[in-house]
Amino acid sequence: MIRDITIGQFYPADSVIHKLDPRVKLFATMIYIIALFVFKGILGLGIITLFLAGIIRMSKVPFKFMTKGLKAIVLLLIITSVFNLLATPGDIVFWKWGSLQITDKGIINSVLMTIRLVYLILGTSLMTLTTTPNQLTDGLETALKPLNKINVPVHSIAMMMSIALRFIPILIEETDKIMKAQMARGADFESGNLIQKAKSMVPLLVPLFVSAFRRAEDLAMAMEARCYNGGEGRTKMKPLKYGKCDYISYGVVVGFLVLVIVAAVLLPFPQG
């Protein structure tokens, strides 16, 4: 169930991609998403496919493991591609029924949209698969540091994120336990209409909130006891430092975007 989703999971492996600075990976993911939406034509698609395939290869994450994450969105993929297929007007009409039609542009659009979505999921999950949640929050904290100047509490937000990441599995387990305990007292979480269902959540949510608050209180005290005093004057066990690989990667990523744009201008065929 919840545990089967691979998006947001970390896949431990010893690869160049795993070792990259999280800021580089955040930047690269952003560029990659931009590329997915500006590319035009077969050449652009080819460049992106090569880029993605190369990185997946380098990351040492098994391709099978990545496609497992796609299963969760199969339904979404089918709906969007069917919608694009049937609702795009075009020059050549192959089939028509009422307002539904299949056209040359519809086919191209539908194929492109599916590719975009699949690539989007593969690319972004590659980032989470190769970056621990902690590195990710670290990366965000450092990348967003300039916002401190306009009074955005960047450190607190990052700390909150990493604590949330630590407690999500614990709270999922706890939900499971409380649910079972209430079911043992005859509670029914499945049947009934929407209002009844919402009502039946009360015996689950109240204990969950009580427990979350108790944990928060305990945790706050434990953090204070270990001299936590906000972000000021803190040092880091694993400070983010750019290495040679990181600078090269920045170059590669920028080059990649330039290539995609050039390809879109020079050979924008077939157009979507």
């Binding site: 949640p133 630590r166 945790l219 001299c227 936590y228 004057g233 803190r234 694993k238």
Partner: peptide, 16 residues
């Protein structure tokens, strides 16, 4: 506090 054992151990020293 942290999601990795060694990072949790480092939490106190980081704070000071």
């Amino acid at each position: 506090i942290a999601s990795v054992v060694e990072e949790d151990v480092a939490f106190g020293p980081e704070n000071v």
